[in-house]
C-alpha cells in the first residue's frame, strides 16, 4: 500500500520545528507502524537525509518507550495499543497520516518525535514507592491479600509510563499516570503506612511539573495502552483530600 506521511521534524529543543511530507510506496500490511518508519528511515539515509528520530525499545508494547500522535490520536486509532504493536493492515491504501510528538509543556521536545518525559521520573521519585529495606521483609505469605484486591492493584500497576494520557488529554494533565501509581500501592496492605504522605508528595511533584488539570474528559483512559481506569484518578483525589485536610501526616501530627 501507499502512504503519505506528514511528520513533525525538529532538530533539537531550540529549533522551531516544521512538518515534512514523505511518500512511501510498498508498505506491507504485515508491518508494524514502527517497522514502516524503519523502512522510511532506511530510504532517507540512503538518500543522504537524516532519519526521523523516534523513541522505541522493546517493540512488545510493554516498555512504554514509544509513542507519538497519529492523526490526532495518541498511539493511533487502535485501542489498547502502542505504536510498536499497531499494524499497517489497520490502515488503508492512500492514507494521509499526520505524525506529531506528545505535546505538553511538561514534556519538552528532544528531537522529531522524541520528547523528554523526565517529569514522570521526578514525580515517581517524590514518593511513588514503598520504602522497604532489602532484607527486612517478613515471609511473603505473612501478608495476606485478597485476590480481588491484588487484581485491582495489578490493574493499576500495569501502567507502562508512556505518557499517552498526557498527550491525549485536552488539558495536558498527568492525573491518570499519577492516579495509577497511587491506586496500585493504595490497594495493597504494604502501601498503607506511607499512603497519605505518598499522595501529598506525588501530587505536589505533579503540580510543579506544569501538567494541566483534570476535567474528566476521559480521553486518557480511552488511549491508554493498558486501559488504566480513571477510577485511579478518583482514588488519588480521595487520598489527597484525606491526607491534606484530615490525616495530615500519617500520624496526623505534622504538616
Amino acid at each position: 500500500m501507499k502512504l503519505t506521511l506528514e511528520i513533525w521534524r525538529q532538530k533539537d529543543a531550540n529549533d522551531k520545528g516544521h512538518f515534512e511530507t514523505y511518500e512511501l510506496d510498498n508498505v506491507s500490511s504485515h508491518m508494524s507502524f514502527l517497522e514502516m518508519l524503519d523502512v522510511l528511515n532506511q530510504e532517507l539515509i540512503e538518500k543522504g537525509e537524516e532519519p526521523v528520530a523516534f523513541d522505541h525499545d522493546c517493540r512488545e508494547a510493554i516498555c512504554g518507550t514509544c509513542g507519538f500522535v497519529i492523526n490526532g490520536v495518541a498511539h493511533g486509532h487502535m485501542k489498547r495499543n502502542t505504536v510498536c504493536q499497531l499494524h499497517m493492515r489497520t490502515f488503508n491504501d492512500g492514507d494521509h497520516l499526520v505524525l506529531e510528538p506528545w505535546r505538553a509543556e511538561a514534556f519538552p521536545m528532544v528531537r522529531d518525535l522524541i520528547v523528554d518525559r523526565s517529569a514522570f521520573e521526578r514525580i515517581q521519585r517524590a514518593g511513588g514507592y514503598i520504602s522497604a529495606r532489602t532484607g527486612s521483609a517478613p515471609d511473603a505469605n505473612s501478608i495476606l491479600i485478597p485476590k480481588d484486591q491484588a487484581e485491582a492493584a495489578m490493574d493499576f500497576a500495569e501502567c507502562i509510563g508512556c505518557g499517552a494520557c498526557v498527550a491525549s488529554c485536552p488539558n495536558g494533565a498527568a492525573m491518570l499516570f499519577v492516579g495509577a501509581r497511587i491506586a496500585h500501592l493504595g490497594f495493597l496492605p504494604q502501601g498503607q503506612p506511607e499512603r497519605a504522605e505518598r499522595a501529598k508528595a506525588l501530587v505536589a511533584a505533579m503540580e510543579q511539573e506544569g501538567f494541566g488539570a483534570c476535567t474528566n474528559y476521559t480521553s486518557c483512559e480511552a488511549t491508554c495502552p493498558k486501559g488504566i481506569s480513571i477510577v485511579g484518578i478518583a482514588k488519588m483525589n480521595k487520598d489527597y483530600f484525606n491526607a491534606k485536610l484530615f490525616t495530615g501526616g500519617n500520624l496526623g501530627g505534622k504538616d
Binding site: A132, T134, A137, P138, A140, I143, K147, L188
Partner: peptide, 15 residues
Amino acid sequence: IDHCVAQGVPFGREY
C-alpha cells in the same frame, strides 16, 4: 519473593 511482596509487587493470589 519476600522482598518483592514488601515492595508492593502484585503477585497472583489464591482466593
